[in-house]
């Protein structure tokens, strides 16, 4: 007690209320964005967790537990959509990484018409997906389409790109790559351009070949670009809807259905609970695949 008195007394005499000034960075700057984002994104996302457990008509909902999810695991066409989504995401992101890197290396080298080539590769990124979808649907027409007519000139009997159930999903994925590879390319170009020239010169003095320079300088040093491309195109692939809808509507049959197209079909059919369950499935799928992927990609980076 006395010790407290001794130390307490002098400070108490001089005690001044600690007055705070207002922060120059006011918290209410968050408010407009927070309201819109909270109301139109977060709230529906949280609500979806509940409505996915119901049979739902928008006006009233009946709680049915995990029935919707059970249906997703049971109905062959829904399972097919789930598998297709993963296949689609893996194909598109894989091709975008490989082709994007190859194009970026080509377009940062001493090549003629670099500006023209960069523009041509990038422009499809900005074009309406529906427009691209329709155009390629026509180009991929099994008998009249230009692609098969071109192949016929070379003596190849072109396949039924979009009508063959075994091929439809891959055909759409190829168009996705056609449209999206420009983005991967510019991301890689930015990554490659940021590598200081010193490393290449040092490697050359150490006697490395062009291929070795690519393998030991370019590839490791543009890893951030690789991470960006993979994550971006993988998430995009899992969520893809517009291109599939414009080209095949999930057909023929359910051959090219993905979760996103299933969600839309169930919505159209009025199965709102099932549609929302599809949303949750897609959400979980993304979380389960992308979070470990991100952690793995970034952990490797940390070790270097």
């Amino acid at each position: 007690m006395t010790a407290i008195m001794q130390t307490g007394a002098p400070t108490a005499a001089k005690a001044v209320p600690v007055l705070k000034r207002r922060s120059p960075y006011p918290a209410w700057f968050f408010l407009p964005a927070a309201i819109i984002y909270g109301l139109l994104f977060l709230l529906p996302t949280l609500a979806s967790l509940y409505f996915s457990l119901t049979r739902w008509t928008l006006f009233n909902s009946t709680f049915i537990g995990l029935d919707n999810f059970a249906q997703f695991m049971r109905e062959p066409f829904l399972v097919k959509g789930l598998i297709n989504t993963v296949i689609y995401a893996v194909i598109t992101s894989g091709l975008k990484v490989v082709l994007g890197l190859a194009l970026a290396v080509l377009l940062t080298s001493q090549i003629a018409a670099r500006g023209y080539l960069r523009s041509v590769v990038f422009f499809p990124v900005l074009v309406s997906t529906v427009g691209v979808g329709i155009t390629f649907t026509v180009l991929m027409h099994p008998t009249q389409g230009m692609i098969n007519e071109g192949l016929a000139l070379l003596g190849i009997d072109g396949p039924g790109w979009l009508v063959d159930p075994n091929l439809a999903l891959f055909s759409v994925a190829l168009v996705d790559v056609w449209k999206g590879v420009g983005l991967a390319t510019v991301i890689y170009i930015a990554g490659i351009v940021a590598i200081p020239q010193d490393y290449y010169e040092a490697a050359r003095i150490d006697g490395s070949t062009i291929w070795q320079s690519f393998l030991y300088v370019t590839l490791p040093l543009c890893r951030p670009a690789t991470v960006t491309v993979i994550i971006l195109s993988f998430i995009g692939g899992l969520r893809t809807f517009d291109l599939i809808w414009a080209m095949t509507r999930g057909g023929p049959g359910f051959a090219s259905d993905t979760i996103a197209s299933v969600i839309y079909k169930q919505y159209q059919a009025g199965f709102y609970g099932l549609s929302t369950a599809g949303n949750v499935v897609l959400f979980v799928l993304i979380a389960v695949l992308v979070i470990p992927l991100t952690m793995w990609l970034n952990r490797r980076e940390g070790h270097e």
Binding site: K14, V16, V18, L19, K20, R21
Partner: peptide, 22 residues
Amino acid sequence: AGLEDISGGELFIGDKLCNAVE
């Protein structure tokens, strides 16, 4: 200057207590 908050004690500029002054 008033760019950092004062956690304790008093600051006078001229005769004015300035702890909480902008």
